[in-house]
Amino acid sequence: MNYKIGIIGYGVMGKIRHQAIDEIKKGVVVAVSEPNGETEIKGIPNISHEEIINHADIDAIIVCTPNFLNKDLTIRALNAGKHVFCEKPPAFTGADILEIQKAEAASGKKLMYGFNHRHHDSVMHIKKLIDSGEYGKVLWLRGRYGKSVTSDYFNQWRAKKELAGGGILMDQGIHMLDLFLYLSGDFDVVKAEVSNLYWHMDVEDNAFVILKESATGKVASLHSTMSQWRHLFSLEIFLEKGYMVLNGLITSSMSYGEETLSIAKNRSTAPAATWKDEIVTKYVDNNSWRYEMDHFFDSITADKPIAIGNSEDAYKLMRIIDKVYEQKEF
C-alpha cells in the first residue's frame, strides 16, 4: 500500500524523514507543516499543523517538532485517526506517556518513536549477539555521549527548559539510556548528578547517571555532556563471556568519527590485554533512517505491533529520566 503522509516540522529531521520515505517507496508525502515557510516546499503544500492532522487523505503523520509540541501533536493526530511516528523525546515525563497511551489504545492506530540508534547496523548486530546467549548475560554497560555546542546555543529552543524539557540528557543522553534498555533490559535503581557548571542555564550541560537492576546486580553508567568540546559516542558492553565496544557513529557530518564495533570472547590465558582475537568491523553506511521508516510502515501494512520504539519502550525510558531529574540540585 502506498501511504499518504504528512510531516509536521520540516527542519533537519523533517527533511531526513522525507528522504527516507522517498527511498523506501512505501508512501508519498502529500503535505508538510513548517511555520513561516513558503506556501509550497519542493512542490508540496505547506499547511498548518491543524490542517495536517485533519487532512482527509493523510494516513500517517511524522512529528518532527521542538520537544514541547511532541505530546500534544501525537495525541491530536491519534485522536484524528492517523498513524503517528514521533521524534524523541516522546514527551517530558512518564505520566505524559500514560496519557499518550490512552489515546493510542482508543485510536487503534500505530505509534512509533524515533529512537534511531536502535536501527544502526552495528547496534542491530550487538542486539542479535546478546539475544543469542553466545556471550552470556550482560554484566555492565558504560556509555559516553558528548558534543560541543555553538556560542549561540543560548538563543536556541534546546536551551530553554519549557521548550526542551531538559538539557543534554534529553537531547543526547536519552539515546544512550534507550540503548541500555534495548540491549540489556530494565533497571529499577537510578542514581544521578546533573549540573550546569559551564553554561549556567536552567537545563543541564552534564548528566552522570548510574543504573542498577537489583535482581541481577547489572549496572550501567552514562555520562552525557555538552562541555566536552568535541563530539564523542562510545558504548561498551561487558558480558560473562566477552565484550562489545562501539566507538563512533555515522552521521551526515561524520563529527562522531567512524562507526567501529570491536567484539571479543573472554581470554583464558594471560596477558588479558591482547588484540589478536578481537573482531573489528567498520560500518560505512547509515541505513538507520530507512530501516526505521520500513519498520513503521511494515507494522501498519501487516497490522502488527511496533516491535522497536513503541510507547511501552518510551514509558520505561521516561520513568528513568523522571528519576534523574528528581535528583538534580542546581
Rank of each mutant, 00 (worst) to 15 (best):
residue 191 K to D: 11
residue 210 I to W: 07
residue 218 K to G: 05
residue 178 D to I: 03
residue 160 K to F: 02
residue 214 S to W: 06
residue 226 M to G: 01
residue 147 K to Q: 14
residue 245 V to D: 15
residue 187 F to P: 03
residue 132 S to Y: 04
residue 123 V to Y: 13
residue 144 R to N: 10
residue 189 V to A: 01
residue 185 G to R: 04
residue 242 G to P: 05
residue 244 M to D: 08
residue 213 E to A: 09
residue 175 H to S: 03
residue 238 F to D: 13
residue 123 V to G: 11
residue 170 M to I: 10
residue 162 E to G: 03
residue 197 L to F: 01
residue 184 S to H: 08
residue 236 E to K: 14
residue 233 F to W: 15
residue 192 A to L: 02
residue 215 A to Q: 14
residue 204 E to P: 00
residue 142 R to G: 07
residue 205 D to W: 00
residue 203 V to A: 05
residue 131 D to F: 01
residue 235 L to K: 06
residue 173 G to I: 06
residue 244 M to P: 08
residue 169 L to Y: 06
residue 135 Y to M: 14
residue 229 W to S: 14
residue 133 G to N: 05
residue 219 V to S: 07
residue 171 D to R: 12
residue 247 N to R: 13
residue 202 D to R: 01
residue 125 H to Q: 15
residue 127 K to W: 09
residue 184 S to L: 08
residue 128 K to H: 12
residue 185 G to E: 11
residue 134 E to D: 14
residue 144 R to M: 12
residue 214 S to H: 09
residue 174 I to Y: 04
residue 158 R to S: 10
residue 222 L to F: 02
residue 200 H to A: 10
residue 187 F to C: 05
residue 123 V to W: 13
residue 243 Y to M: 09
residue 144 R to S: 07
residue 191 K to N: 10
residue 187 F to L: 05
residue 137 K to P: 01
residue 229 W to T: 11
residue 170 M to W: 03
residue 125 H to V: 12
residue 164 A to V: 03
residue 232 L to Y: 12
residue 205 D to P: 04
residue 150 T to L: 13
residue 224 S to E: 02
residue 164 A to I: 07
residue 174 I to S: 02
residue 212 K to I: 05
residue 222 L to G: 00
residue 155 N to Y: 11
residue 187 F to N: 01
residue 143 G to I: 08
residue 144 R to E: 12
residue 130 I to L: 15
residue 145 Y to F: 14
